[in-house]
Amino acid sequence: MVLARCAFVRACLALLLQASRWSARESSSCDLNRKQSELNSFLWTIKRDPPSYFYGTIHVPYTRVWDYIPENSKKAFQESNIVYFELDLTDPYTISALTRCQLLPQGENLQDVLPRDIYRRLKRHLEYVKLMMPSWMTPDQRGKGLYADYLFNAIAGNWERKRPVWVMLMVNSLTEADIKTRGVPVLDLYLAQEAERMKKKTGAVEKVEEQCHPLNGLNFSQFPDLVVCKVSMSIKEND
């Protein structure tokens, strides 16, 4: 049953990949060097005096998307005096609270809640990632003092105490492509750092608990299967 579900997930991913290839071929005649003014901004304006804005970010290294953010969005950010983010990622309390909320109740470990076979496969996969991570690091990362052991512990440290849903998200970030971009802030954090540097007033629209409790309250009857599928796909990606 688990293998069937994994096969289904992989089939869906294959279809998505094929669709993206078709889309790329169909758009090959498009001008890829469009002017900034011609790009969709995805910026919502609340007409008031002064104006307010809504802008959606994405949790990827900002260098992947910064050149594709239109100038009107950047200008709105620069001219705003107050900026509110999803969470205040510059606040040490936010980071420590996010770390705490991922943990299982006191006295419980991941091997207590996952089937033995799945736990062993997960452990072997993490051992493989730790072994491979030095070869995934870039010279630039090493030049900045970012080393494999430190990075692995920063991402996967204390993994045996984490709740399964957070372990799945953790495994998702332990690919070669993701490791190579570690050290570059995601777009949300970059904008928060820029707002701080520009002396803007900042705040958050959510509390850590409002993000953690819904995830921690999920009761996936198929969750162990999802962990297996994620580990299996990660192994294939890293081969």
Rank of each mutant, 00 (worst) to 15 (best):
residue 33 N to Y: 02
residue 52 S to L: 02
residue 35 K to R: 15
residue 17 L to W: 07
residue 16 L to P: 12
residue 40 N to A: 08
residue 26 E to A: 14
residue 40 N to D: 04
residue 16 L to K: 14
residue 22 W to T: 08
residue 27 S to G: 10
residue 51 P to I: 05
residue 29 S to H: 13
residue 48 R to A: 10
residue 27 S to D: 11
residue 36 Q to Y: 06
residue 41 S to I: 00
residue 32 L to A: 11
residue 51 P to V: 05
residue 31 D to L: 01
residue 55 Y to H: 02
residue 26 E to F: 08
residue 49 D to K: 00
residue 42 F to D: 15
residue 25 R to I: 10
residue 48 R to I: 07
residue 52 S to V: 03
residue 18 Q to H: 11
residue 16 L to A: 15
residue 32 L to V: 10
residue 41 S to F: 02
residue 24 A to G: 08
residue 49 D to I: 00
residue 57 T to D: 09
residue 30 C to T: 10
residue 56 G to R: 04
residue 21 R to H: 08
residue 51 P to N: 07
residue 36 Q to N: 12
residue 51 P to R: 03
residue 24 A to I: 00
residue 15 L to M: 11
residue 56 G to A: 04
residue 18 Q to M: 14
residue 44 W to F: 04
residue 15 L to I: 06
residue 49 D to E: 07
residue 35 K to P: 01
residue 49 D to Y: 03
residue 30 C to L: 14
residue 43 L to I: 04
residue 30 C to P: 04
residue 40 N to Q: 07
residue 42 F to N: 14
residue 44 W to A: 07
residue 52 S to D: 05
residue 39 L to Y: 04
residue 47 K to G: 06
residue 38 E to Y: 02
residue 45 T to L: 03
residue 23 S to G: 12
residue 55 Y to L: 02
residue 24 A to N: 07
residue 49 D to A: 04
residue 49 D to H: 02
residue 57 T to H: 07
residue 33 N to R: 03
residue 15 L to V: 09
residue 31 D to M: 03
residue 31 D to R: 03
residue 45 T to Y: 01
residue 48 R to L: 07
residue 24 A to Q: 11
residue 37 S to N: 13
residue 33 N to H: 06
residue 38 E to I: 03
residue 37 S to L: 13
residue 16 L to T: 14
residue 25 R to L: 14
residue 35 K to Y: 04
residue 51 P to Q: 06
residue 21 R to M: 08
residue 20 S to W: 02
residue 36 Q to I: 04
residue 15 L to H: 04
residue 24 A to E: 11
residue 37 S to W: 06
residue 54 F to C: 15
residue 29 S to W: 05
residue 23 S to C: 08
residue 39 L to H: 03
residue 53 Y to D: 06
residue 45 T to S: 07
residue 57 T to G: 13
residue 21 R to S: 11
residue 30 C to R: 12
residue 34 R to M: 07
residue 47 K to Y: 11
residue 51 P to T: 03
residue 44 W to V: 08
residue 46 I to K: 10
residue 25 R to K: 13
residue 22 W to P: 03
residue 56 G to I: 02
residue 37 S to G: 11
residue 28 S to P: 00
residue 35 K to T: 04
residue 26 E to T: 10
residue 36 Q to V: 05
residue 50 P to W: 00
residue 20 S to V: 04
residue 36 Q to C: 12
residue 44 W to S: 12
residue 47 K to C: 10
residue 49 D to P: 01
residue 24 A to C: 09
residue 57 T to K: 09
residue 25 R to N: 13
residue 29 S to Y: 01
residue 38 E to K: 03
residue 55 Y to S: 02
residue 18 Q to C: 14
residue 44 W to K: 05
residue 33 N to K: 00
residue 22 W to H: 11
residue 54 F to H: 08
residue 29 S to G: 13
residue 42 F to R: 13
residue 45 T to K: 12
residue 57 T to I: 12
residue 46 I to H: 12
residue 50 P to V: 04
residue 33 N to C: 05
residue 42 F to V: 09
residue 27 S to C: 09
residue 40 N to R: 08
residue 45 T to Q: 12
residue 27 S to R: 15
residue 21 R to P: 02
residue 21 R to G: 01
residue 40 N to K: 06
residue 41 S to R: 01
residue 22 W to F: 07
residue 35 K to G: 01
residue 39 L to W: 03
residue 41 S to G: 01
residue 36 Q to G: 14
residue 55 Y to E: 02
residue 16 L to H: 13
residue 22 W to N: 08
residue 27 S to Y: 05
residue 42 F to H: 15
